[in-house]
Design a protein around this nucleic acid. Structure first.
Lengths: 155, 155
DNA sequence: TTTTTTAGTTGTAAAATACAACCAATGCAT
DNA sequence: ATGCATTGGTTGTATTTTACAACTAAAAAA
């Protein structure tokens, strides 16, 4: 009983290592596509999904990083004129990020590129398993997030 | 048909974003546990699994990073006397990393800590779904790796 | 009205990561 | 045996992500 659980602990850890390794392609720090990084593309994508405008604090929640990190991640996109900062009408402390016309173009171009990669992924998974895979990966993500939320005195 | 595929592209991309977000806890750059980072722990773990000794080029394959990165990642572990460099008997260019007694202690301590986290993860997933989840996440990892291997002129 | 919380920026700093360049050892082709 | 290609690994250089602390000002709560 104890032995079986031990083995499964190892299996879960191997999954985590495997995921980190295979997802590293996306988190590669060098320029990813159209002169932006993968995380920067994610930002454009979140804003695109929010009808072209999103508050910094919403964005920081979506990204799951510190507020300071969100400021730094958005800065190159503002500099490249893919996003613009807009004062919030509701709270004068707050800033909203708005997609520019240029930002839409870059978002679309990178998404077109991304789709080719995703289609390859999809084709690697048999049709019959696909829904199970999607459902199970979501379940795994939620279990990871569950654990991240708990108080810990270590790790 | 086209519409359905489009929607599924989005779903896969959302999975990738979700995974990157939830795995970020591990890749947090601050010290993770026992004065080492998560990736450094992975290195100790790979070496532990290889009976305490592993070549640099094997390690760089397992990690999925550039050789230069492997050198940098191992350096703090050598400095902290958790690993030691050993010349290869087969190829005088090659270096092998050997676990020290201290390294074993740290590896065991961090693994004990890691197990608590993994047990939480495991408990979040219903018993009935667990094997499916493990199998499906593995399938997803393999499909990502499949795509990473293909030649690309972009991304 | 006062205190607490929140929004976001900036200073500072660390870790991971890559590419180029390099040197020497090994493997391969002739 | 010789010459060329490949491999093993390091170092220089540089970028991105990321966090914590400190700060200011606005909003919310007591």
């Amino acid at each position: 009983m104890e032995e079986g659980y031990h083995q499964e602990d190892r299996t879960v850890f191997d999954l985590i290592k495997g995921l980190i390794k295979s997802l590293r392609l996306f988190q590669n720090e060098s320029v990813f596509c159209e002169n932006i990084t993968f995380v920067q593309f994610c930002i454009l994508d979140y804003i695109s999904s929010a009808e072209g405008q999103l508050g910094m604090s919403s964005l920081h929640s979506l990204l799951g990083v510190e507020k300071s990190t969100t400021t730094r991640l958005a800065a190159p996109l503002i500099k490249q004129n893919l996003l613009m900062r807009v004062a919030s009408s509701k709270d004068s402390r707050a800033v909203e990020l708005k997609m520019t016309r240029e930002g839409e173009k870059v978002h679309n171009a990178v998404w077109a590129c991304m789709k080719r990669f995703i289609e390859d992924c999809r084709q690697s998974i048999p049709d019959t398993d696909r829904k199970d895979v999607i459902s199970s990966v979501n379940m795994f993500i939620h279990s990871l997030e569950n654990c991240c939320r708990r108080d810990r005195n270590c790790c």
